[in-house]
Write a protein that binds this DNA or RNA. Structure first.
Length: 323
DNA sequence: CGATTTTGACCGGCGC
DNA sequence: GCGCCGGTCAAAATCG
């Protein structure tokens, strides 16, 4: 990517169903692509810089934390919503209702997070999260019988898998897989319904880290890449470790929790204008919506839902270190 | 040669 | 109950 890669923050838009929901976006509801701002030839670095700094500050973290009001650990926090429900609708509503659609004049990044405890994948999560860490070991110890069954590893039945919170955002980029400072291993790819572009699934390669992310392109605007992060990194970004001393400093400080993808935030969040009026009550699952973080400059960032997500989800759009 | 990607099969939930 | 669909697995292929 160091090549001509160009990634920029992008604004709202609608893509496939899922994501649309994610962002609560629909042309009708948002007036077409009004929300899309093109930064294309805009500006990158300078503006980003400021973000960086902003995010490095304590103010940012605090604000964010408060905004999302989430218990740091999604796993613990989420535990709940088994009631079942599908937060899918909830999410949508929240987003939409949150209404504050980021329509910004210059550039904007859309972020959306979800706690999907009961979401569509309530079931399959069994594998991913729970197995996630153990999988490796399990594999080695796996016996033939199990092997033959392959995927069939029923993990505790009644127990519904609690999905980690998710966080999605759109970025204008030529490359699908945006560099966010972490190392990812692709483990799958699927065609996306209603879209000519496939969705790729990645997992953090760091051992014990179960963070996943999926990347897909908006069928509406191929220049837009939608990245959805799920989970929290249990470690620091390799990139951080390897050279961004300033970042490291901040992340190792008490201000930013380890694993926090500061890079992205730094990159995109300008100022926080928190306004959570959406609060889905879910036991331990507070879903707040940080709606419309307005940026005086040009970036706008919409962060709905919990901060937990953000903690790791925010990728680094700033610098490009490549794989 | 180890790490990563590709790719088709498979799983499990959900809606009809 | 069945089919659809999103997501994951894992063997094979590819890469560095």
């Amino acid at each position: 990517m160091s090549g001509g890669e160009k990634r920029e923050l992008y604004g709202y838009h609608h893509f496939n169903d899922e994501l649309s929901s994610f962002f609560g976006q629909r042309s009708e509801s948002m007036g077409g692509t009004a929300g899309m701002l093109d930064l294309q030839n805009g500006e990158p670095p300078a503006a980003l810089m400021s973000f960086n700094e902003f995010f490095h500050g304590p103010a940012y973290y605090n604000a964010l934390t408060r905004a999302f009001d989430v218990s740091s650990s999604p796993e613990e926090g989420l535990g709940v919503s088994e009631g079942g429900k599908t937060m899918r609708d909830v999410e949508v509503e929240s987003n939409i209702g949150g209404g504050v659609t980021p329509v910004t004049p210059n550039s904007s990044v859309s972020l959306s997070s979800t706690e999907a405890a009961g979401e569509e994948d309530s079931g399959r999560c069994k594998k991913d999260l729970q197995l996630g860490e153990e999988k490796v070991e399990e594999k080695g110890a796996e016996n033939d019988a199990e092997k033959s069954k392959k995927l069939n590893k029923p993990r505790k039945k009644g127990e519904k898998r609690q999905r980690e919170p998710r966080f999605a955002f759109m970025t204008k980029s030529e490359v699908d897989h945006l560099e966010d400072g972490y190392r990812w291993r692709k483990y799958g790819q699927k065609a996306v319904k209603n879209s000519p572009y496939p969705r790729s699934y990645y997992r953090c390669t760091t051992q014990k880290c179960t963070v996943k992310k999926r990347v897909e392109r908006s069928y509406q605007d191929p220049t837009i890449v939608i990245t959805t992060y799920e989970g929290q990194h249990t470690h620091q970004s390799p990139a951080t470790l390897r050279g961004n001393s300033h970042i490291l400093a901040s992340s190792s400080s008490s201000i930013v929790p380890p694993g926090f993808p500061q890079q992205l935030l730094m990159h995109q969040m300008p100022s926080l204008n928190i306004n959570h009026h959406h609060q889905q009550q879910m036991d331990a699952n507070p879903s707040m919506f940080l709606q419309s973080l307005q940026t005086p400059r040009h970036q706008q960032f919409q962060i709905p839902d919990n901060y937990g997500l953000l903690q790791d989800i925010i990728p680094t759009l700033i610098h490009n270190n490549h794989p």
